[in-house]
Design a protein around this nucleic acid. Structure first.
Lengths: 336, 336
DNA sequence: TGTTCGAGATGAACCGTTTCCATGCTGTTG
DNA sequence: CAACAGCATGGAAACGGTTCATCTCGAACA
């Protein structure tokens, strides 16, 4: 059983290779019955076109690259998985690369991808993205960590956070702390603005009286923990009755800090996270969190690269709405 | 600036295309000065060979495929990340595919990879692997979930579990429960044997008196939780004082079960997990777990595929030792 | 000196598709 | 009825490398 090629299919179907090729590519000018016959033979023979040959003569490689900072981050791994499924549905495959948040590595990976003639790149930039030169003429979609000047797709972080904070406000909380992401990160600032939106709108500014309850931290667990310690290390009637964390990992770190300080959750402290990673439902108690629509984001990114959907304008990214997942870490505040 | 091809290089260097090709592939029979001249021209022109064309006629694609059941599982995402780094060090790239534990999808993905002419495949088989026909002639390394009849690489689950159970024995535990993996899974059975090894060796069988303390479950959180409920739903002097779970996710689910039953950890119950995923250090209290050497496994798999290392014999897999990470979920048992 | 031999280089064939142009056929129009 | 437009199809060139059968040339040997 040697490998079957397009000529074998053509011979058996009694047509020319050109016709078979047209069938394969859904070219309109081929009659229904010929198409049916050829497709039958293809299935019988288990014929699979050789991607190398296709991409040599044609221009497409049916390969798309995805570059992310860290696959260990559950948010990104879900992104990759969703993208892989979406791409597979269109006959595309994914080359995955991790930059480990290292700008030089990131640039190198992107160069490798271009020389592979990928049909497009999904990029989650490293944190020093400003040093990054993207190649022209290759479709690139920037995802999640939007870069000014490039067209991107992401969850609507700002309104998502607002949603979460409003949930806390509705429960009656007023002293709501916020654990922010790293200051230079675009999504971190979006999230911060969402918090400020909600708080300012809450009751005309009086809510914000008193010391600011904002702590800046990296997105990881350990940073969330120390930020939590910082926010909670004050007198009971001054410390926040609720904390919104910019990532689930931060939120879980913060839960740990509260636990170590002997502050019961949610009795004395409500916590809301952001991301909606699977881990969020595995904590004790289960974390209330704002879920990003990762699958939608990934599917849209793939669709844009495959021209199934028009690319977003520069500086006017496509945003997908977040939704709140209620867990067990939120409750009305106790009286002081 | 039209694209430069091998013929352009050949013409400028005053040699034939064949010679240029041999320079590109480090073929020995080409003189030093010719090689130098050609390499100079290549650099001048910024020539980059077209990978599709190379892999069409030639046999190597510098691409390796990796097929896993679920990228959302932190164990697998770390595996992929490690493999990507290892491959990149050798100029190779990774095509990642997820089967979602669906045998048909898995077979389809493998077919896609072979038609892409990947130079090798790293495979973590789905749970119904027995229906799987692997193509001959393509180097495949089976990782983690070893398949009888194929050469594989994995962590030494059996001895790893034994290590963890012995840790509990040393603390003084005797009624040690075990949450097993799904019965048809090869690593699940390896882990179970590790448990039995340790228990039998402990004190000549007397330890095993009484009802068996083994619960079978899937590897996920929810299953761990119900297995925990099952093991703990008995009188205090009959229920286990310690539980070894076959995965960290199970262990965390089990912690949740204990918490719901009002059993304090580690005071009244010690728990040890298996895998060593990052999540393990984020629980409260921190989970004691047996860490698999994922990076070593991934690096070895890549090395084997690239012929940097001789492949393991069939049915004699390469095993890497696990190590125990002490957390806060283990303590000596309370008297009954 | 003539012959053999082998390393280094050549040029064309080849890989499996897509795409372009030619061809024949059908149906429409003047 | 002739001319022609349009469309489905066939056949072959083209894509950009690798590889193989040849060729050339100089050294080694008798």
């Amino acid at each position: 059983m040697s490998k079957v090629g397009i000529r074998d299919v053509a011979k058996l179907a009694g047509v020319s290779t050109g016709t078979v090729s047209r069938v394969l590519n859904d070219h309109p000018s081929v009659t229904k019955d010929v198409r049916a016959r050829v497709e039958g033979i293809i299935k019988d023979l288990g014929y699979l076109p050789d991607p190398s040959a296709r991409s040599m003569r044609g221009k497409v490689s049916r390969l798309i690259g995805i570059v992310i900072p860290d696959l260990t981050n559950p948010f990104f791994s879900e992104l990759v998985q969703s993208a892989e499924q979406a791409a597979a549905n269109h006959g595309y495959n994914i080359i995955v690369m991790t930059s480990l948040d290292h700008a030089a590595k990131e640039a190198d990976r992107i160069k490798q991808l271009t020389s592979r003639k990928v049909d497009g790149i999904i990029l989650v930039p490293s944190n020093d993205f400003h040093t990054l030169k993207l190649p022209k003429g290759l479709p690139i979609v920037v995802v999640d960590r939007l870069m000014p000047g490039y067209s991107g797709i992401a969850a609507d972080h700002r309104n998502g956070v607002r949603l979460g904070v409003e949930h806390l406000l509705k429960l009656g909380h007023r002293r709501i702390g916020f654990i922010s992401g790293p200051g230079h990160s675009v999504p971190a600032n979006d999230r911060l603005r969402g918090y400020l939106d909600a708080m300012e709108q809450a009751d005309g500014g009086t809510t914000m009286a008193g010391p600011p309850l904002i702590a800046e931290a990296a997105f990881d667990y350990e940073s969330g923990r120390s930020a939590g310690n910082y926010l909670l290390a004050r007198a009971r009637n001054e410390r926040p009755t609720a904390i919104f964390a910019s990532s689930d990992q931060q939120a879980i770190g913060c839960m740990r800090a509260a636990h170590d300080l002997g502050i019961p959750i949610p009795a004395a402290l409500s916590i809301v996270g952001f991301d909606g990673i699977p881990l969020a439902s595995m904590t004790t108690p289960r974390l209330t969190t704002v879920k990003q629509p990762i699958q939608d984001v990934a599917a849209a990114a793939v669709a844009v690269l495959l021209n199934k959907q028009t690319a977003p304008e520069l500086d006017d990214p496509i945003l997908f709405a977040c939704e709140i997942l209620e867990g067990e870490t939120t409750a009305p505040p106790q009286p002081d």
